[in-house]
Simulated assay, not measured.
Amino acid sequence: MPDRSYRGQLQPLRPEEIALKNALQQDVKKLAVEIGMRNYDRYAQLNSAKDFLATSLTQVGYEVKQQEYKISRESYFNLEVERKGTKKPDEIILVGGHYDSVFGSPGANDNGTGAAATLELARLFSNKSHSRTIRFVEFTNEEPPFFWTENMGSLVYAKGLRDRNENVIAMLSLETMGYFSEVEGSQKYPFPIGLLYPSQGNFIGFIGNLGSGSLVRKAIASFRHHAQFPSEGAALPDWIPGVGWSDHWAFWQQGYQGIMVTDTAPFRYTHYHTKQDTLDKIDFEKLARIVSGLAGVISDLAE
């Protein structure tokens, strides 16, 4: 990967990062505490999460497009907003995260953090213009039983892109982003990846398949330029456990480059897919640093 991961003391948050931290905390609280478990088995709560995200996006001036599809006569929705590019509007940078939670979990980190990060990034870009189009999507039904099936929200969405021949040149999947540890041995890896990476779970990861290797390198180089926060990147065969465990997988199936931005989920976060995945586990100060850095990444990709 280009450049080096940041090491050393984290600098105090800037005023705009403090505001971002507070907004992220309020968003995740809404999703994981006030709404709680949200999925096919908690259909009303899933729709409450959808309505919260749609209303929040509308309030900052976006026209929210709701992609509806049905499973067993129930409707499910992906939410899409965008800022049209000024010079290359047909080239799309797409940023997304899923807003559903796994059965039995309030889903604060997985994936309240990714859904909230997508929302706050959309807010940050609501009045900005770039050469390429920037699109933000909140996906439904990433979790089982729909994971890696035709009813996975992001796969439904990505197939629509391909059917319309839309030119997505980069997809960033924001997935389980808020848990960090300085403890030695807190970070695990699928064999043999751990031989090359840190044993402390204090970094944010940029993960792609081999076909998305150039995007991984561009994204992490940009992040390391914009953010003073530890980061690690990898372009790996997609058969390695964890490499395709989020919505970027759906875009690979349609021939698009996609990467996952993540704290590595079950390889670090012991509360993954449990009822203990709660608000208090998330380090919102660090999450704000990451989201701020990702704003720089998106801007760079969009130019």
Rank of each mutant, 00 (worst) to 15 (best):
L121Q: 11
E285L: 03
A295E: 15
I290D: 04
V168C: 06
I18A: 04
R14A: 14
I35A: 09
T262S: 15
V60Y: 09
K65T: 14
Y76E: 09
N78S: 03
I134L: 04
D283E: 13
Y99Q: 09
R162P: 00
L287P: 11
V168L: 04
F147S: 06
S105M: 03
G153Y: 02
K21N: 03
I93Y: 05
W249A: 13
F147Q: 09
Q257S: 15
S299I: 00
S56F: 01
W252T: 08
R123L: 02
K65S: 12
K188E: 12
P237E: 07
E16T: 12
K65V: 12
F191H: 07
I207V: 15
L24E: 04
V291M: 08
Q11E: 15
G112W: 02
S56K: 13
G97L: 02
K159Y: 09
R164G: 01
V156M: 05
G107K: 03
D263F: 01
T176D: 11
K30M: 15
L155N: 01
K88M: 12
M1V: 10
H226I: 01
K128Q: 15
T278M: 01
Q9W: 00
S212T: 08
K281E: 14
L46V: 03
V102Q: 07
Q9N: 10
L174E: 08
M260K: 14
V168S: 07
T176A: 14
P144T: 11
D247P: 05
D163N: 05
G233C: 05
M37P: 10
P192H: 05
Q66L: 11
Q257H: 06
E120S: 12
G233I: 04
S222E: 04
A117I: 06
S246P: 07
E74L: 15
W148S: 05
N78H: 02
G205A: 15
T270E: 14
M177Q: 12
L20D: 04
G178A: 09
T58N: 14
S231A: 15
M37E: 15
I134R: 05
Q66V: 13
K21P: 06
G194H: 10
A23Q: 13
Q26Y: 01
L119P: 07
G205N: 11
N151L: 05
K21C: 09
G296Y: 05
L20T: 05
N39Q: 12
Q200I: 12
L57F: 05
K128S: 08
L279S: 03
P237T: 12
K281L: 06
R217F: 03
D51N: 14
G213D: 11
I298Q: 04
I290Y: 02
P144Y: 01
G211P: 03
V137T: 07
I193R: 00
R132Q: 13
A108Q: 11
T55N: 13
G8N: 10
Q253N: 11
R162G: 01
L301A: 10
E17G: 08
Y40G: 00
L279F: 11
P106K: 08
R14H: 04
R73Q: 14
F103G: 01
G107L: 06
W252P: 00
I298C: 03
E68H: 07
G85E: 11
A117S: 15
D283T: 03
R38L: 08
F147L: 14
A302D: 11
Q276C: 00
E303F: 03
L301R: 06
Q9A: 14
S299V: 02
L124W: 07
V156K: 12
H248W: 04
